[in-house]
Design a protein around this nucleic acid. Structure first.
Lengths: 166, 166
DNA sequence: ATATTTGTTCACTTTGTTCTGAACGAATTA
DNA sequence: TAATTCGTTCAGAACAAAGTGAACAAATAT
């Protein structure tokens, strides 16, 4: 194997891993994806283990994560009983979808909690003494602002695919 | 202190911490911001320590991170020599800016590396034998696609503030 | 039937991050 | 001037996340 070529290959993969990690995804998942992305041929679990110098366990777990995200898919290779994988090379689609899904989940969780806080404040409003009533008003008002914003964000996310990602 | 009120208050802060953490920021930073966000009064380091049950060290480090992001600012309180802080309550501005800056840094790093890989391939192109020449072509083509995409993303990020964040 | 190959799962270790307590210097008060 | 109050820094403890090896079950080959 030409070592210059291999160096470039490996550096690309390393970079993908770093990026993946810094984006809150798994480093090995990023490396695996880059490996598949570059390869003209489908790749087996064992080859992943060999090329990335990782354990079979990691390869197994992470390739299935990629599968789950629609970033890789299993493919049948004639006369070979090992699982082979290829990348869906539409990086943009995959990355933006990851981002979108991740944001949506977080926002919706936060929204749920914020809604609960609002409910708590409303429900016990009558029990507050004057001092606390004033404070509760401040809280309500400010929390409402937050909820408004996050609703706005949710809408924005729903909008994203058609406007920006096609 | 009315305990219902306090519960709502604390739950809001807890939620902010969780969200902050899940977004790759620091949990305490999120809690601190939420604390300041709700408070009608400026808050001192010691009060943060007391209300969030954290160490002075954490409070100090994280409040300055918030300051650096423009999410909190120091304020002078008459007759008190402690530092007091208030939140900039424009959550949208702060959050979107964080997101933007974070993405920009990562993308630009990745871009640098990808550019280098392209250079490596080009530079050593002549030395490849036929087999590798073909492989190198595949790499180049695919990596170029990635670069195009990330350039697109960079542009999109530059565009963001005016279009979406007004 | 037995042996081998293959991918998955899980308990454990390793690695990296975050938080804290203690020590410190600067500023303020007595 | 000495004592106290503050905020910062830093080494190390506590914690969380990720990767590994070994055991396993399923499929295939001998």
């Amino acid at each position: 194997m030409n070592s210059e070529l291999e160096k470039a290959h490996d550096y690309f993969i390393e970079t993908a891993g770093r990026l993946s990690k810094s984006m809150g995804l798994n480093e090995i998942a990023g490396q695996l994806y880059a490996l598949l992305y570059l390869s003209p041929e489908p790749i087996s679990l064992n080859e992943m283990v060999g090329k990335l110098k990782i354990s079979k366990a990691s390869a197994s777990v992470n390739i299935r994560a990629l599968e789950g995200w629609g970033a890789a898919k299993k493919i049948w290779v004639k006369g070979n009983r090992r699982d082979h994988y290829i990348a869906d090379r539409d990086v943009w689609k995959i990355a933006s979808n990851r981002l979108k899904v991740g944001l949506e989940r977080r926002i919706s969780e936060a929204n749920g909690a914020v809604g609960q806080v609002e409910k708590m404040l409303k429900d016990s409003e009558k029990k507050f003494n004057d001092e606390n009533k004033k404070l509760a008003r401040t809280y309500m008002e400010r929390i409402k602002t937050v909820r408004k914003m996050s609703e706005r964000l949710e809408k924005l996310l729903k909008l994203l695919p058609t406007d920006l990602l096609e």
